[in-house]
Design a protein around this nucleic acid. Structure first.
Length: 493
RNA sequence: GCCGCCUUAGCUCAGUUGGUUAGAGCGCUAGAUUGUGGAUCUAGAGGUCCUCCGUUCAAUCCGGAGAGGCGGUACCA
């Protein structure tokens, strides 16, 4: 009877984020900059929904009907499975295939939005996060891939990260050539995959760790054992020679051609890399911005040619000052097979994705995020409850003049109202008690100048008595007086 | 998924060798001669000591299981 109802703990599901006004403003600014670059390259926006039929996304567990590994799924009322999209590429493939008749080809589009992954979150890894993609569908040549790389570089520059990133480029065909050279490749897809995964860990485990993974396997510090690819010493040497191939230009291409000599697919890959390198050079993108790097593999099977990723070249530390291992903040490649799930004829495609959330997170930790505090509204204090209609009228006048303004709606005294205005980051407050009302004036306080002036006082009572940074204005001149304060504070930042 | 560590107020943490009313700092909400932000002073709110089961006269504390958090590792379209 008198039991209080059981309270629900207010808690954020793990792997998800709340975003403050400040975060939203910062990410919005990032998005606007990215969009401007994509637009300049001639890409058009397109938006698809958060849900797709699970089969569209291409994820089913073979032995169960429930598609739930890694994806958030639910069953529609007609019993079809729907899933939240886990990237923006599969939905694009669906959209392209479904609207094939009416779209221009090559089809160049960009889109930005949240994607969802139902897996263990970690620092910089969320279960809902934002990506910003661009893709060219229906263009087969390396020029389309090269354009993607250059656009990624330009985007990073536009985000104010000049000199702090590098776009690393490789070609899957070269890697396939190397694998075939040691008897793997299509002949042994399972072990090939183990090799790919091992190479992908080069940055974290180094040559020695990868050597173990290519051989018998590796035991990590928690005692967990990862089975290796069981390659012989000779084969391991070849793989590491490939991933370790350094230099740029003819030096590198010579080495690569030697490693895949006699393998048609591998040689084709080297030629594509050369073609892309020539385009980068012609357009003025040096190896400080875009670099050919054989250690880039980008995990997954669906890439069929060039692959690329953006790496931040500065160290990221968390709030406690510990270094944070940040994966790539963007990447992509050519995926000629993706649309073929929907159409018989093959459709070549290439594209890339920027992890907006992850990048924002990195920039936040390094202080590079272009975030300024959101400027709050002008707050009209409520000094006398009976005079509320007067205050409301002042707010209306300010709003009609295009000024962000509000009347204090709480029930506390003046002190609390000032604290409220402070916390809202209000640039000014409007005060009218009975004294002012009788004289037909209002008191305007400049909150920015006021805070500065208050630092000169050590005694609270003195500060209150001095009432710094405020002035009296005729009631009829309210808007003009407030505008003057806003201009003095720098207006919109 | 596997391995390790952790869980007491919103946050960071004390503490109780098993015993009546579990504490601090910060933060939060307010007050200090109609009426001034920071600093200061005063007061207040805020706890299933992660949950359940067991042992015990008695469990926040001991035992077991579970959940959650953190880290590593695997996977990552």
């Amino acid at each position: 009877m008198t039991d209080t109802p059981k309270l629900i703990a207010p808690r954020l599901p793990r792997g998800f984020e709340d975003r403050s006004a400040r975060d939203i403003a910062a990410v919005d600014a990032m998005i606007a900059r990215i969009r401007a670059v994509y637009e300049r390259y001639g890409f058009d926006p397109v938006e698809t929904p958060l849900f797709e039929y699970t089969e569209t996304l291409g994820k089913f567990l073979p032995d169960t009907d429930r598609p739930n590994a890694g994806v958030f799924s639910l069953q529609d009322d007609d019993e079809q499975w729907l899933s939240l999209r886990y990237d923006l590429t599969a939905p694009l493939a669906r959209y392209f295939a479904e609207n094939f008749e009416s779209l221009p080809k090559p089809y160049r589009s960009y889109r930005q939005g949240y994607v969802f992954r139902n897996e263990k979150p970690g620092p910089g890894r969320f279960r809902q996060f934002m990506q910003f993609d661009a893709d060219t569908v229906g263009a087969a040549g390396p020029a389309a891939d090269a354009e993607m790389c250059m656009m990624m570089a330009d985007t990073m520059d536009a985000l104010g990260l000049s000199g702090q990133y590098v776009v690393r480029v490789n070609n899957r065909k070269v890697l396939d050539g190397v694998l075939e050279g040691i008897g793997l490749g299509p002949a042994d897809p399972a072990r090939s995959l183990v090799v790919l995964r091992a190479i992908d860990k080069l940055d974290r485990l180094g040559d020695d760790g990868v050597r173990q993974l290519l051989g018998k396997g590796r035991e990590d510090e928690s005692g967990d054992f990862t089975k290796g690819a069981e390659l012989g010493a000779d084969a391991i040497g070849k793989v590491l020679a490939y991933t370790g191939a350094s230099g740029q230009g003819e030096d590198l291409f010579g080495t690569l051609r030697g490693l895949v000599s006699g393998n048609a697919r591998g040689e084709e890959g080297v030629s594509e890399l050369e073609a892309m390198a020539a385009l980068f050079a012609a357009a003025g993108y040096g190896p400080d911005r875009i670099r050919i790097d054989p250690s880039v593999v980008r995990g997954l099977e669906y890439y069929t040619g060039p692959v690329f990723e953006i790496e931040l070249t500065f160290e990221v530390t968390n709030e406690k000052g510990q270094p944070v291992v940040f994966g790539s903040v963007g990447g992509g490649g050519r995926y000629d097979g993706l649309v073929s799930r929907f159409r018989k004829d093959p459709v070549p495609a290439t594209g890339f994705s920027i992890g907006v959330s992850r990048l924002a997170n990195a920039l936040k930790l390094t202080g590079n995020l272009v975030a300024s505090d959101v400027i709050g509204p002008v707050v009209v204090l409520v000094m006398d409850r009976e005079a509320i209609s007067d205050y409301q009228q002042m707010v209306a006048e300010l709003r009609n003049a295009g000024i962000r303004a509000e009347m204090y709606l709480g029930s506390s005294g003046m002190n609390a109202q000032m604290k409220y205005a402070n916390r809202r980051n209000a640039p000014a407050v409007v005060i009218q008690g009975s004294n002012e009302r009788e004289e037909g004036v209002v008191t305007i306080k400049d909150m920015v100048a006021g805070l500065e002036a208050a630092k000169a006082f050590t005694d609270n009572a003195e500060m209150k008595a001095a009432r710094p940074a405020q002035f009296s204005a005729p009631r009829t001149g309210l808007v003009e007086a407030v505008e003057r304060v806003l201009r003095a504070d720098g207006g919109a930042a």
